[in-house]
């Protein structure tokens, strides 16, 4: 005989409130990146030991386990490592307009950043595709200074 669930119990409400925390986050790498964008520069950190270039730069190299702080500039062009075509929101409702977000390896960097890829037809996007950044007319020194990426 199949299991039958019993009667519903009483339901009560309680919260777990993440706003009660005073988080400390190391924002140096992201600040370096954002600040540089005012001059249309993309800045990361290079590990002086293994040469890995991280964008944004972390305070230490994951592989070598040493503190790192050598600033490295990378190009605003790169290669699509992977991408996704967003068609619905988190609740599953279709979006009015599909949009392509890409995982992009900028030239000179060993890590990936995410960015929107602007194309007329998303079927044209493919892994390995070359793209470059399209900057806003007046960069403000924040992560929205690159409006999107477009195919080269």
């Amino acid at each position: 005989m199949a299991f039958q669930m019993g009667e519903e119990t009483r339901q009560v409400q309680a919260t777990w409130d993440v706003t009660t925390y005073n988080y400390k986050v190391d924002g140096r790498g992201i600040k370096l990146l954002a600040d540089g964008m005012k001059d249309k520069k993309i800045l990361g950190i290079r590990c002086h030991n293994c040469g890995t270039v991280y964008v944004p730069g972390p305070p230490f190299c994951r592989k070598c386990y040493i503190p790192i702080d050598e600033i490295a500039e990378v190009k605003d062009s790169g290669e699509v490592v992977s991408f996704a075509v967003e068609m619905a929101d988190v609740r599953g409702n279709p979006l009015d307009e599909v949009r392509v977000s890409g995982m992009i390896k900028l030239d000179g960097s060993d890590t990936f950043i995410n960015g929107r890829i602007q194309v007329d037809d998303w079927h044209d996007v493919h892994i390995g595709m070359r793209v470059k950044a399209v900057w806003v007319p007046e960069p403000q020194g924040n992560l929205s200074d690159i409006d999107h990426f477009e195919p080269i």
Partner: peptide
């Protein structure tokens, strides 16, 4: 005074 990851890195390193 420092974020958790930095505290841990400095301690363990």
């Amino acid at each position: 005074g420092v974020p958790r990851p930095i505290m841990l890195f400095e301690l363990v390193k």
